[in-house]
Nucleic acid binder design. Sequence first.
DNA 1: CGTTGTTAGTTACAAAATCAACCGTTAACT
DNA 2: AGTTAACGGTTGATTTTGTAACTAACAACG
Lengths: 144, 144
Amino acid sequence: MAQDDFDLQDFLPYLLNQAAEASSLEFQKVYKDRYGMLRTEWRVLFHLGIYGRMSAREIGRRSKMHKTKISRAVQKLAERRFLTRTTDDNNRRMEWLDLTAQGQKAYRDLRAIAMRYDAGLSEKLTDRENAVLRQALRKLAQGG
Amino acid sequence: MAQDDFDLQDFLPYLLNQAAEASSLEFQKVYKDRYGMLRTEWRVLFHLGIYGRMSAREIGRRSKMHKTKISRAVQKLAERRFLTRTTDDNNRRMEWLDLTAQGQKAYRDLRAIAMRYDAGLSEKLTDRENAVLRQALRKLAQGG
DNA sequence: CGTTGTTAGTTACAAAATCAACCGTTAACT
DNA sequence: AGTTAACGGTTGATTTTGTAACTAACAACG
């Protein structure tokens, strides 16, 4: 009984959010239940796993997460021995973050799950939809 | 200096989230600064504005928001006289939610902004990308 | 040097989301 | 009717996030 020609399902910010939430749900269960991680935490883990050692600032630049979120995620990951922090000698404000062996292991485990999970999502879409979707999302993610 | 063939930018849950966040940012500013609303609140407002009178439960079913979020959003919107609540005579557990004149006005104002904003986002994409994107997102949003 | 500004990261406090337990009402079954 | 379960919605405690103000280290400029 629509009273209106505007449709929430066509409003991109809403639609994107619905899709994002629906499609993170199962993966969230894994990193949460199996590793007790938060979204921020697996993101930091993945940045280090994929790109190798970097600083918190650099993770922020790439992920657009706020520095306080990252700071707290790093703290927790360090407590749990998933990463180590080493202050840089030339610039003692910054720290290099490295995954420990344990961190690498968790990363590889989660990565495998992520890949399978992503493949499962892709199956819901045609090849063309997959290609165009990812392309379009990248444009939108850039912001501006 | 990737060490890895897995790319975060190809992982749909991540990519969707990046796009969702980037694309809600400016709209958020509007409903927050102009109406002091939370995301949950404009969503409730929009559901009532678009589809007309309904119960909190029905909003939850459609939006997949948790009932506590909705309950609190409804409270705030009622306090601010954007909607009224009427308990159903045949089932006194439930309430019918209706926008007040003031609520309708806020809705129409925000809807106009949303439409312009959505149009702006669409301009970043080709027609084909727009069509395929929305189609694909709807599939993903359904979950399962 | 000394002041001022910037950067990398942390902390404290307020705002919001989550989770479980809770009411009052209705439905289902005996 | 009497008991139990389910429903629609609320509340309170805890967790997580967001915002601002804060270190400590460095850089730039006089």
